[in-house]
Amino acid sequence: MYSYWGFGLNIKSDIAFPELLPKEFDSADINILTKEVPQHLEGEHVTKKVNVSMNLTEYLHTVPDIADYYVANGNEICIQPQPGADEKSIRLFLLSNAMAAILHQRGMIPLHASAVYHDGGIILFCGRSGAGKSTTATALQQKGYTVFSDDVCVLQNNTNNELIALPSYPMIKLWEDSFIKIGLGAVEEENKIRPEMAKYARFYHDEFNIAEQKIKRVFILETGNLNETVEIKKLGPIAAFKILQQNTYRHVQMNGMKKRDIHFAMISKLAGEVSVYKIDRPALGNTIEDLIAVVESNLAGND
């Protein structure tokens, strides 16, 4: 068995995850096992969608030609790979869907955000897939910032009932296009996140720190048809709440597992405690330098 840390949890697995951080521990929070999964979920309150169903404590997900995943009680993931499926894809969908189900089942809040360290805590970059979260975090990394987490940050109340965030795992996923925009040099075939996808992994296991962090500021990244320049705007608490809620990771699971209440409470707390800014930028062209300039100016105290 392999032992790892990811998303705030100690993970035992019978398959290797180069994406996760190796870690020794006494007792595991979750076990990942390769074995047969149930055909369907029994009982009441089952929400059925396309190739996925869930109830309060179970989640069953089929990715055609890749694998079936069964997630139960916040502590168990079973994988039944399809014949001939590639291992990268099997791991990718486990890390993005089954792990999200674990978090929702445990009442932890995954937020769709990348983050870097700043000012004794972290700053978050939220946005839909493709909004530029990973590209922004990597561009800041190139300027000397340290990356806290890519794509997902897990929100929790700590033992002092303070809102804190935990990182996911030490891998940044970037489109090939972003390597060019940030000037990262050539991509390497072996780092493709799936065999036929122009998206690549950048590992940062050496910099990765699993300590919880306070959130100092949130930037929401958006692109739009009508923007011609990069613009930043501070959001009021209600607008901030609304937009943060839209950035819950896997909102289908939140609804299917009836977790809206705890999400509401956590997002309200975040919106109430932290300044939230929305950055709009043009949908076309390379605006990453302008974006970084706007962020750094904001962090330096200019609104």
Partner: peptide, 20 residues
Amino acid sequence: FDNCTDMDSTELYDKEVKNL
């Protein structure tokens, strides 16, 4: 698509999307 499948379709091939 994403709402019906609980997937992040940016991680899918176009062929997989069209099949679903």
